[in-house]
Every structure is written in C-alpha cells, then in structure tokens.
Amino acid sequence: MRLTPQQLVDIKARIAGRPSVTAMRDNPAEKQRRAQKYGNEKVTDKGLSFDSKAEHKRWQYLAMLERAGEIRDLRLQVAFELIPAQVSPSGKKERPTVYLADFVYTDPKGCQVVEDVKGAVTPEFRLKRKLMLWRHGIEVKEVRS
C-alpha cells in the first residue's frame, strides 16, 4: 500500500492526537468574540449604534429633551481634530489625532455642549479632554454611568 504525502501527514497527526489537516479544513474552528475591554455591551436602536447601555440611555434622555425644546441640534459621535496630520523630517506621515465626542448639542443659552459618557476614565480620555480645552476652548462634560 502506498500513501500520498498528504495522507502520511494526516496519519501522523491522528497518531499524535491532533486533528488532521483534512479535518481542520472540513470543520474549521469558530471564531470566538472577545469581550469588551470594560465590560460594556453594544446596543443598536433604530439604526443607531451605541458603545454601551449607559450611552444609549443618555441618548434617549437627550432626544427627549430635544423633543421638549430644552436643547437643540443634538448630534451623535461628532469628531474634533486635536492635532492635525503631519509629516516628520524623515518623510513619515502621521495621521491626525481626533477626539470623537459621544454627544454634542446646543443648550438654552446658545452654548455648545460636548458630552462623553464614561464608566471608567482612561488616561487617554484625560489627555484628549485637556487638548479639547486648549485647542477648541471646549470643556467636555463627563457623564458617569
């Protein structure tokens, strides 16, 4: 009896207790979804996607305030450029640094309000909050979940 090289590899794998190449091809392993870093659950509502239940709940509250006329121009996931794109002396291109605000709206006094819903405050957020104040003169309102 003569074996092909592929059959020989499959037999050696079976003897070693591993799945054969053919078995792995016919029954691929399913990808496991990793849990979110801070334990939040993504929520989708009416075609809008939210990073957490707390963010979704805050959106519902702000949308209710907008319908009541308390606030206006409510927007979701607004990008603010903090550091523009640059080219280093060696010619390497650096992408811009952007802060993505959860919510932006205009309050009754006509002032723009930028809100970010936070369960855990990260060092990156602290830095971006300070850059927002320095670059745009906007104080980010932190909403705790």
Rank of each mutant, 00 (worst) to 15 (best):
M1S: 05
R2T: 02
P5V: 06
P5D: 05
Q6F: 08
Q6C: 06
D10G: 03
D10Q: 03
K12C: 09
R14M: 13
I15G: 01
A23N: 10
K31N: 07
Q32Y: 13
N40V: 13
N40E: 08
D45E: 11
D45V: 09
L48V: 10
L48A: 06
L48P: 01
D51A: 09
S52K: 05
W59V: 07
W59E: 00
Y61P: 01
Y61C: 04
L65C: 04
I71S: 01
R72Q: 07
Q77E: 06
V78I: 06
F80E: 06
F80R: 11
L82S: 02
P84W: 09
P84F: 05
Q86C: 02
S88G: 03
S90T: 15
K92V: 07
K93A: 03
P96I: 05
T97Y: 04
T97P: 06
T97W: 07
A101M: 03
Y105P: 00
P108I: 11
K109V: 13
C111I: 06
C111M: 07
C111A: 02
Q112D: 12
V113A: 09
E115V: 15
F125K: 10
R126F: 07
L131D: 12
L133G: 13
I138M: 15
V140K: 04
K141L: 15
K141A: 15
